[in-house]
Design a protein around this nucleic acid. Structure first.
Lengths: 190, 190
DNA sequence: AATCAAATATGATTGAAATCATATGTTACC
DNA sequence: GGTAACATATGATTTCAATCATATTTGATT
């Protein structure tokens, strides 16, 4: 359930929390107690800047983590609020830092996880820079991003679901994509 | 010049390379020799997918790094090509992996760097999801992204420079931003 | 001082995707 | 078996940012 290498941590390092919509996971300024995995629901991270503006930093959805950087600071620098009924797992900061010092394999696992997240986010940003909907959807499919629903793809790549459906249709008409029996889209082999 | 913790590496672990536009830093499939820092110019990372489509993974600009994840694989999984005359510094994979094993402070520095990159990319993606140009520019300024030129800001947040200039003007007219004597934009204090 | 490149700044026009609307198909659950 | 929720699908209309055009200002280079 937890992504590597956090699956290696024993149960005492994990604290499950059930949240109603609107509940805080933590507040800006709270002492850091660990990082989090979203088991279900969604968590929104917002920060009140010095100038008084509310800035959204991240919307963490089921299956993803948040507050990794809290490992290296004493206080959370944003609010984490459930935007839907959610379950999150807190991974103890002290347990992680201890394990990281004692277990090189675990430590490398964290670095590896973060490096692959960086890669993925960069690719997503690059994808967002593609101007036309057709080309964007094509690149997204080509890089294997269409696994869940079209709606999920749409929100990932910064288009509406309608625009995605239309692009998929046009790309199929142009022969760049083809649809399998099970309704999946794949690249057309030249 | 190099970001922490790579500034700690001694000279023998750094290899400077000067590239003409179009030169390859490495090819997909090459043995990994390290990760890279872009001193000047710009490097584009592209991958040829199994299905034969060319996907851009990242555009690395001056001051940023690329191929961090190559630390954990034997072969580069993309091409890195200079899109302008560039200087890059290669940081030796073996030196990094060795140092990482022997120096906990160095190892933590890498994790810290990657964690803050993850944070930053996430925030940028969140920013890209903001629908209107005015709100997007406001959030960008509120989170301190307007340091360089407006043109740089524009490409970061996925707008044209014209749209940015217009948004800055409208936000100023609305009293949400104000312009300092030196032409800098700051949040209007309420 | 002259020249060139880039940043700043706006106006006019266009176009592509968002929005709104609607219909059917598919699961899942009481 | 009914209905509620969501995914798929596509047409009509609107809107906002992209594009194109142009001018001034600033900064660097010779």
């Amino acid at each position: 359930m937890l992504p590597e290498p956090f699956d290696l941590l024993n149960d005492s390092a994990r604290k499950c929390m059930t949240l109603a919509k609107g509940d805080h996971v933590f507040h800006q300024g709270d002492q850091t107690r660990g990082l989090f995995f979203v088991a279900s629901g969604a968590i929104c991270l917002t920060r009140l800047t010095e100038a008084g503006a509310l800035v959204t930093l991240h919307n963490a959805v089921a299956g993803s983590m948040f507050a990794e950087a809290s490992l290296y600071s004493d206080h959370y620098h944003c609010d984490a609020i459930a935007v839907a009924p959610s379950k999150v797992i807190r991974l103890s900061k002290s347990a992680i830092l201890l394990r990281q010092r004692e277990d090189a394999f675990f430590s490398e696992g964290i670095t590896r996880l973060l490096a692959s997240q960086v890669q993925d986010y960069r690719q997503l940003l690059t994808l967002h820079a593609v101007k036309t909907a057709n080309e964007r959807v094509f690149q997204a499919v080509a890089s294997g991003r269409l696994r869940g629903s079209v709606t999920q793809l749409a929100s990932q790549i910064g288009l509406t679901k309608e625009a995605c459906y239309r692009a998929l249709k046009e790309l199929t008409d142009q022969g760049l994509l083809s649809k399998t029996g099970r309704g999946e889209y794949v690249l057309r082999q030249p």
